[in-house]
Design a protein around this nucleic acid. Structure first.
Lengths: 341, 341
DNA sequence: CTGAAAGCGCTTACAG
DNA sequence: CTGAAAGCGCTTACAG
């Protein structure tokens, strides 16, 4: 028998001369179906490779079993590990995942949220873009009652559950490590100031200096707005050219750390002897550069898993509104770029 | 007015005391709707942030505007650029994308295809897993009439459209480059032999040798089944320990090339002086190792874009069955690991 | 210019 | 043990 498209309950019912209700019940082991009918139905379903139409089910159940994900960029190793964590946890519970990249653009983020809400996702996992300052698009989601969990990048003033890492502590550890390696004049390359993660890392840096009685000097704290390697390289080269004393660098992300590393090398200085360097958000290349880059490792996969678990909890619980924040630990991975001892 | 969940046409109709049909028509600029009605409807839709329920539309139109993607692993830089290309092209045409990672597992690939088919995606973009030998799950998709396009990894015996790169030519270029740099005893680290890309690259390697009258020796062709850095490092170390003459390495992927590079360094040999190395599938780290790794660059973003365009064409065209294969060019990126001249 | 009805594929309360 | 009916949200051919 030739068919086009996938087989439906109706097709099976027609061929067997029974009603759709019966087919539906036979397919799901409903009590009170004659063994003969059940066998006839399941045999035919197998033969035609019947798959329940998830769209029809979604409409009927008012539930799509899809969770939407808004992520800045999948090309970042960190975010791709987060996605893996989300996917695995979601799949385990029978959910599919729909991912939209904002490419760090506010407009695209807002459009993506609209698309995902139109698709009636059961919940939304979001890591906001660098550009996002206005939160109206997110507040709408909340008002409409769709569960939403933030990950990695905390959003203030939303009262939503979040899974983040301890940026403050990570930065503190990184800075203290530099101090223990006898760095005293430590430059901090920060991220864009509208992301909370950037501010927290800066606080960690400052606290570590203070706890070790090292003066905090504003000229040692420099913003890398774009966070690219080129930008960091330029910024670092400029700092070096001023002749100010520098014997350590803590960069807010590994790409910036890499830029700093290049600038230091080009200036003819030795790493770690003259300047020790520590990055943030350890990924593959960190171990491959010469010397290997010391970095703060973030548990991307766990962030994804926990964020997915949180959203599933919220989807499946009646009581809305009680939000929780999970803070995961970072880990200092020491490599050649900072080891003097 | 307090609402929970998103607003529907019915809600608007009720509040305005008109029928759903009218609301539907007013919302889509249907001819023959009184301006007053239209304004009342659109105002209310705006106020309540009405979004058409994509699920209901999908069911009615028998079309979801979703394309499904099966991809080995998003953590690979190459694949993440492919995803970006797919997403951008799809979004431009009003499609959403649903991505499933197979993690190079046949079973997970088959499950994901079932999930995507259950979700009634309009088309499927697939790059098969390393493990996939049995093609039944893919044939089912074809039989059921769902358009399917393969990318990067060609599948034989399926008569489906595909977007691939010219693996043969890329490998030929890589090998010829090594020959031009005076390598004569060139090891080829291949991928798993059940992937066609691996076989094509091997053919390119062999042709280049033959065209330059260099003997092809089986012991110089070694399979790296898993394609990990560790495996390649071990394989290479073993080759070096045999004492056979080696002055060049062409690895079927960059991670394997990196393993080889490590092994050569550890053996105390100089790169490129003693052994020149070329990889395949250029990505970020290739430029960061010491020395920089010469590699064949694959246009991931374009592969994604073209694959998406192809599937959209197939979805929107009536005539099924005429499949086309697009072959994109690679580019040799020369860096320190191979430049002797 | 507007409305009632049917239908996309499925489930389930209600009858029998 | 089985079936007819209603409904999820939307659109559109058919009436009026």
């Amino acid at each position: 028998m030739m068919r086009s498209g996938q087989v439906t309950i109706k097709d099976i019912a027609k061929e067997l001369n029974i009603s759709c209700s019966t087919v539906s019940r036979a397919l799901k082991d409903f009590p009170g179906i004659s063994p003969a009918t059940k066998k006839a139905v399941t045999d035919l379903a197998d033969k035609y490779n019947y798959r329940p139409n998830a769209i029809a089910l979604s409409l009927r159940n008012q539930k799509t079993n899809v969770i939407g994900v808004i992520i800045p960029e999948t090309v970042h190793f960190f975010f791709s590990t987060v996605i893996s964590g989300i996917e695995d946890a979601a799949m385990k519970e029978g959910y599919n995942v729909m991912i939209c990249q904002s490419n760090e653009s506010y407009e695209r983020e807002a459009d993506s949220i609209d698309a995902l809400m139109g698709a009636r996702v059961d919940g939304l996992l979001v890591s906001i873009s660098r550009e996002t300052a206005d939160l109206d698009h997110l507040k709408k989601v909340k008002d409409e009652g769709t569960p939403m969990v933030f990950f990695d990048r905390l959003v203030e003033g939303m009262n939503a559950s979040s899974v983040i890492i301890d940026d403050y502590q990570g930065a503190y550890d990184a800075t203290e490590h530099l101090i223990e390696q006898d760095s005293k004049n430590i430059v901090h390359l920060t991220g864009p100031s509208n992301l909370i993660i950037g501010r927290k890392r800066k606080e960690g840096y400052i606290s570590a200096l203070e706890d070790h009685q090292i003066p905090v000097r504003e000229e040692y704290i420099v913003e890398c707005r774009k966070g690219t390697q080129e930008e960091a390289e330029q910024v670092m080269a400029k700092l070096l050219s001023t002749g100010m004393a520098i014997d350590g660098v803590f960069a807010s992300n590994d790409v910036a750390a890499l830029g700093a590393l290049m600038a230091v090398k080009k200036a003819g200085l030795k790493i770690p002897r003259d300047i020790a360097i520590v990055g943030f958000s350890n990924w593959q290349f960190s171990s491959l550069v010469e010397p290997g880059l010391t970095s703060i490792s973030q548990p991307g996969y766990e962030i994804g898993q926990q964020a997915a678990q949180l959203i599933l909890e919220e989807i499946n619980s009646k009581e809305k509104g009680k939000s929780q924040i999970k803070i995961l630990d970072t880990e200092l991975i020491v490599r050649g770029s900072s080891t003097r001892k």
